[in-house]
Design a protein around this nucleic acid. Structure first.
Lengths: 154, 154
DNA sequence: TTCCTTGCAAAATATTTGCACACCT
DNA sequence: AGGTGTGCAAATATTTTGCAAGGAA
């Protein structure tokens, strides 16, 4: 819950003339308590445990809103459904690059070589942006393959 | 059609105990004639112009097979549908990194700074692979933002 | 009290599967 | 002939929308 104060959700919602409601609080809370990248369905099932009256639709709508506000980040890892994480999760580094296991679908957030990588990406963005007259607002960097457990099992 | 000989589809299918059929030929042909990243539906609609009897299901099944064979690459650009391109398209460089316009959904294949980028990615892959005991088989690198036309219009 | 939010049911999208028939080799 | 490939319809899976009722400020 503490993080909710840090995030100042209430204030951020108010600025948008939006209300702080139980579903919204619950969803942010759940995202703040996991290191995983949850799908809407996974979030829904956890939400129901805390508050069975909340519907699936609300989960989707809330995630959209939170994404819009920059509170959550939505990812696509190639399994056909969106996955969400808190943009600023106290449990994770602020580096949204991933290793994606194509067997078990596990996602590993890596935080190695971040500085080199960030430096490289920034430079590349500057160059591409200029050359293609393209305003870059974000990027996706993923490495796909087989994780240790799946590799061992093989 | 010429490329079909280059690709030696017939032989590659035979090796898998699979047959060279009209739908398969047609779909590869269509992918070989465009620089775009077509969705299954877009491919289907082009297929029908050449051969109206081919069904949607066949398009999906064929694309799966071709992906499996390494003839086509499937991409996800965040709009909820898969998009396909020939892995070795004579019309495009062999570099599957993209700029994705979040307004008009246009995809720009860039081929600038490829050498630096490939070098960097290889190095990163080696390091990550070792550190996380993860066998890397591929990667996704995309930059999202607003393309020139959409930016001008704004 | 205002009007933002929500839940439910239904719709919209995207993709997959079962099955009988058609077609390569 | 024999097994692979295909079309159609139906099933899945995921996400979105209409609308009346509920709830935060």
């Amino acid at each position: 819950m503490a993080q909710q104060h840090i995030l100042d959700l209430h204030g951020r919602f108010r600025k948008r003339r939006m209300r702080m409601t139980r579903p919204r609080r619950t969803i942010v809370d759940i995202l703040g308590r996991t290191k995983l990248h949850l799908s809407a369905e996974e979030i829904f099932s956890r939400v129901r445990k805390q508050c069975p009256s909340i519907g699936f639709t609300t989960v989707y709508r809330t995630l959209d809103v939170l994404e819009d506000m920059g509170v959550v980040v939505k990812h696509h890892f190639g399994d056909g459904r969106g996955r969400y994480e808190l943009a600023d999760n106290p449990q994770k580094p602020e580096h949204h690059h991933h290793l994606v296991c194509t067997r078990c679908r596990r996602i590993i957030d890596y935080d190695d070589f971040v500085e080199e990588e960030v430096g490289f990406v920034r430079k590349l963005e500057r160059q591409l942006s200029k050359k293609h007259v393209f305003t870059i607002t974000g990027h996706v960097i993923q490495f796909h393959g087989v994780c240790r457990s799946c590799g061992d099992a093989a």
